[in-house]
Design a protein around this nucleic acid. Structure first.
Lengths: 143, 143
DNA sequence: CTTGCTGCAAACAGTTTGCAGAACT
DNA sequence: AGTTCTGCAAACTGTTTGCAGCAAG
């Protein structure tokens, strides 16, 4: 599925008349190799350590592209940094965020999603996206 | 209930050995007179227009105090500004945010709250707080 | 009179932007 | 060749902090 994502990105780039560059390939590779919720800074450092000479700005610009291309999603937690997570087609999940150790557990809940649709409809809203984050202490940090 | 909030704040200030100042009174008054979801900058401008000579920093510091005192809650929407809303004891609501006109509709849903508790329990989390935001187009902007 | 509070300006962090040169197509 | 992309540094935005003077207790 990594190849699939690369294809998605290449198609996107082609369809928009953009260019395929060494930097974009590297950033995509490294992004795909990461776990969820990486911040731009973290990704930048990872890239820097293995492939010197890619600038801060390029990482920011490229992640935005990934988001446009539909293979990354921007998430804003409580730490003042923009983070990105992988998008898996048709799947959505929310987050349990530990306020002590910052660990994140993902979950999905159909019922909540359905209720959200209902609420939106009731208020005349057309849902674009949503974000549900539950903050608290994770199992490890409770003790 | 505005008086009640002032009392809450005075008690908080007293109990922490902090001081009651002209600026804090003014900021509290104006904050209480606002509608929901005001940003620090908006509040600052409001204050400045009626009571010249209160600094940016003081507004930031004071809103943090209000949050600690439990009468304001920080909310982070998608617009890169920290906003505060009034806390009404024991009440919680979530937000429908219009991505075109930035209007916000609040809602409450007991079932969603209950499901969240269940999910947290299942993952060993102890809930501190949560945030649910649904982004989309409001009734006016859909057309 | 002691200590916390304020206002200012400077510092900061994260992110964006302008531009000259490099690199795709 | 023509244009997009990149790297750098500078600019920006929202927020925080250091400090000298002010004010509450």
């Amino acid at each position: 599925m990594i190849l699939e994502k690369k294809k998605t990105f290449n198609d996107f780039v082609a369809s928009k008349g953009l260019r395929s560059t060494r930097q974009r390939d590297i950033i995509l590779d490294i992004f795909l190799s990461t776990h969820q919720h990486i911040s731009v800074e973290e990704l930048y450092l990872k890239i820097k350590s293995s492939n010197a000479g890619i600038g801060h700005a390029t990482v920011y610009r490229t992640l935005k592209l990934f988001a446009e291309a539909g293979l990354a999603r921007e998430i804003l937690l409580h730490d003042g940094q923009t983070r990105y997570e992988h998008v898996v087609a048709g799947e959505h999940h929310d987050h349990l965020v530990c306020t002590r150790c910052n660990s994140i557990v993902e979950f999905e809940n159909e019922t909540i999603e359905a209720l959200q649709k209902e609420i939106a409809t009731r208020h005349g809203f057309q849902i674009g996206s949503h974000k549900l984050e539950i903050y608290g202490l994770c199992a490890n940090c409770r003790t």
